[in-house]
Simulated scan of single mutants.
Amino acid sequence: MRRFAIGAAVSGALALTAVSVPAAQALTPDISFSNVVVNGGKSITVGTSATVEVPVTYTITRTADVQFDDVSAVVELYRGSSYGTAENFLFPGDVPTCTAVDDTTQNCTGTIAIDPEIDLYDAKDATTWKSAGVYYRFDDDGYDYIGRTTSATATLKRAAKVTTNASPEPVKKGATLTVTGSLTRANWATGSYSGYTSQSVALQFKAKSSDSYTTVKTVTSGTSGALKTTVTASTDGYWRYSFAGTSTTAAKNSTGDYVDVQ
Rank of each mutant, 00 (worst) to 15 (best):
N88I: 01
K252W: 02
S254C: 09
L156H: 09
L227H: 09
T229M: 02
T48P: 04
T51E: 06
G256N: 02
R148P: 03
Q262K: 14
A189L: 13
G47L: 10
A26T: 13
D260I: 10
G174F: 06
T61V: 07
P92S: 09
D125S: 13
V179T: 05
T28A: 14
Q204A: 12
A113G: 05
A186H: 02
S82E: 03
L183C: 09
T215G: 07
G237R: 08
D70Y: 00
Y241L: 10
A175K: 12
V74G: 00
G40T: 04
A100D: 01
T164W: 09
C108W: 03
Y213I: 09
R3K: 12
T45P: 06
I60M: 01
Q106D: 10
T184R: 14
P96I: 03
R137Y: 12
S34C: 03
T164D: 05
F91T: 06
K124Y: 08
T127D: 15
Y121E: 13
Q25F: 13
N165M: 12
G84C: 11
D125T: 08
V19Y: 03
T85A: 15
D103M: 05
D211I: 10
Y143Q: 01
T215L: 09
A132H: 02
T104R: 08
W239R: 06
F89T: 08
G84N: 09
T61D: 00
S234W: 06
G195Y: 05
K206I: 05
L183I: 07
T85F: 11
L203M: 10
K161Y: 04
G142D: 07
T61E: 00
A202K: 15
N187Q: 06
D211M: 10
T153D: 02
A132F: 00
G256V: 05
T128E: 07
R79H: 13
D69P: 01
T232K: 13
A18T: 11
A23V: 12
V95R: 12
G80Q: 06
G133N: 03
T127P: 04
G41W: 03
T149K: 06
Y78Q: 07
V101P: 00
L77Y: 01
S131C: 03
A202D: 09
S151P: 03
P29I: 05
A160T: 15
T230G: 03
G93E: 00
G245N: 08
F33V: 01
D102A: 07
T153E: 05
S234C: 04
T232N: 08
T57S: 14
T218S: 13
I31Y: 02
D119H: 13
A50Y: 04
T57W: 02
A233K: 07
Y193P: 04
Q262F: 11
R79P: 06
S200I: 02
Y196A: 15
S151Q: 13
V38F: 01
T230P: 05
D94M: 07
T48I: 15
Q199A: 15
V95L: 12
S224E: 12
A207W: 03
N39E: 04
V10C: 07
R3V: 13
Y121Q: 15
S182H: 08
V95P: 01
Y241D: 05
